[in-house]
Design a protein around this nucleic acid. Structure first.
Lengths: 144, 144
DNA sequence: AGATGTGATGTTATACTATTGCGGTTATAA
DNA sequence: TTATAACCGCAATAGTATAACATCACATCT
């Protein structure tokens, strides 16, 4: 737990610096949502975050969706499409080409930044954005 | 249009043969859903199919979702995760490793069956299932 | 024929995911 | 000060998907 908090804090500070450098506003709500994602260490669903945003459970859906949109746009988080969930981006500036390996047993997400070229692109097709998600078992969950 | 219908019919017949060979029941509802996907030539949403399933608009959500589950399970269709939509599988038996190139202008989907190996798999990670979707513009929509 | 099992479908209700629209606040700029 | 824009709160609603249970059609066994 201590480790997790330290990591979260470091990542939060890095995010803050990045936002400042790019003229983006990491407001308290956005910062808190990012903090939740970092602490979870696994994809979170929007409605599961809602209850934690305001003690007492008072936050509304648009609050968390707006924060998530900002974080995804800023490259600080990814949407996990096949789970309708969200995860913190481990690499700061995503550049839009992340490749996720998601363990279905423990929920851990490993994130690679994909090679620039896609092997098999149809002739003349111009790729703007890719969704690449692999589901399975991580090494820790495969071992006996 | 004529061409589309001919293609659809051919694909439907192929699907029927495949199901028979594997002991799967391509019932009228399932067949009709597959037909809608084939005729559309682009991803369709479940609720958009609903109205067309029963003339008069009488079908209920579980009807179409069950049919889609069957088709996806049988390798006759794919879910397009980032669109919450479904598309017919061009290759009959999918084997579970499709790679989709989706034109955001005309909706056309090109489907490749991915190479068996994933370049960058983390050590010890065992991939069960992959979602690979590329969004952009197809050659026809890129040309002047 | 009658009983029973199984898979597919129908039906109702509900859960879950996400967005729209509006109004108020705050920070910044002219 | 006024204008402007970005952000947030709030209420309502749209869109996506499933649960739970009843029913039907068909096959098999007695």
């Amino acid at each position: 737990m201590a480790t997790t908090h330290l990591d979260s804090d470091a990542a939060l500070n890095a995010a803050e610096a990045q936002c400042r450098a790019r003229g983006l506003a990491l407001t308290p709500v956005r910062r808190r949502v990012l903090e939740l994602l970092l602490e979870a260490g696994a994809p979170l669903k929007a409605y599961d975050m809602l209850s934690q945003l305001k003690p007492g459970g008072g936050a509304q859906p648009p609050t968390v969706y707006r924060a998530l949109d900002f974080l995804v746009g800023a490259g600080l988080a990814h949407k996990v499409e096949a789970l309708n969930a969200y995860t913190a981006c481990a690499h700061g500036d995503a550049g839009g080409r992340a490749e996720l390996f998601i363990c279905e047993t423990c929920g851990h997400v490993e994130e690679h930044h994909a090679r620039a070229d896609i092997a098999d692109t149809p002739k003349g097709f111009h790729v703007e954005r890719s969704v690449v998600e692999h589901y399975g078992r991580c090494s820790a969950c495969s071992d006996p």
